[in-house]
């Protein structure tokens, strides 16, 4: 996928035809900037780490749960995927809780809750209270635990919380296509 994107970047724009409200050339430069940015938000496959007890099933369950919460509370699905990206990046760090969470599923769940808490703060008009997040865990995790972990996660991610997301790439790549608006909306919906 990365190579495909690279190839698209290298293909020089032929003309300055306006695509939507943005000129093609601008689109290429935005995509190029996003690719550069993406490198700073890198992450590894922590399911392969030697010390991990988290497996694919476990992560899949958590992903489903996050999307369920987001759908029930009418948040944007994009917020859920951003929160999953925080989760994955954090789990690769050597932060104490990340290490613990690789061994302990309960701790892993706490990380999931907290990354969702952070993502809503940044991308939703209305943030969730830490107390609500605590309720979501059915009282397993306290507000204090969530707030303390929020800080730990932010430090571990070095406050890099606005990385480019796959959906944004799709959005820009779609603008490069010369299909009709309706088709684009449909394609976007399917992505």
């Amino acid at each position: 996928f990365y190579e495909m994107k690279q190839a698209m970047m290298n293909a020089h724009p032929q003309d300055n035809e306006t695509v939507g409200s943005m000129i093609q050339e601008d689109l290429y430069s935005v995509l190029a900037a996003m690719l550069r940015q993406e490198e700073e938000y890198e992450c590894h496959d922590y399911l392969e780490f030697d010390d991990t007890k988290i497996d694919e099933t476990c992560r899949t369950k958590m992903t489903e749960w996050v999307f369920q919460v987001v759908d029930c509370t009418r948040l944007q699905r994009e917020t859920a995927s951003v929160s999953m990206s925080y989760l994955d990046r954090f789990m690769c760090t050597s932060s104490p809780t990340a290490k613990k969470a690789r061994l302990d599923r309960k701790e892993y769940q706490l990380v999931v809750l907290t990354t969702l808490y952070i993502a809503t703060k940044i991308f939703e008009p209305f943030a969730m209270d830490a107390s609500l997040v605590s309720k979501l865990s059915r009282g397993v995790h306290s507000e204090e635990e969530i707030i303390a972990l929020e800080y730990e996660i932010l430090v571990a991610l070095q406050w890099k919380v606005n990385g480019p997301t796959p959906l944004q790439f799709v959005n820009y790549l779609l603008e490069l296509l010369s299909t009709s608006c309706q088709d684009k909306a449909l394609l976007y919906e399917h992505s």
């Binding site: 204090e144 932010l154 406050w159 890099k160 919380v161």
Partner: peptide, 21 residues
């Protein structure tokens, strides 16, 4: 701070500034 964690406006500002160049 103990109730609402890291302030939202600061969090957004930092995130955006870090992503701009």
């Amino acid at each position: 701070m103990t109730k609402e964690g890291f302030p939202i406006s600061a969090l957004r500002e930092i995130g955006v500034l870090l992503s701009l160049s």
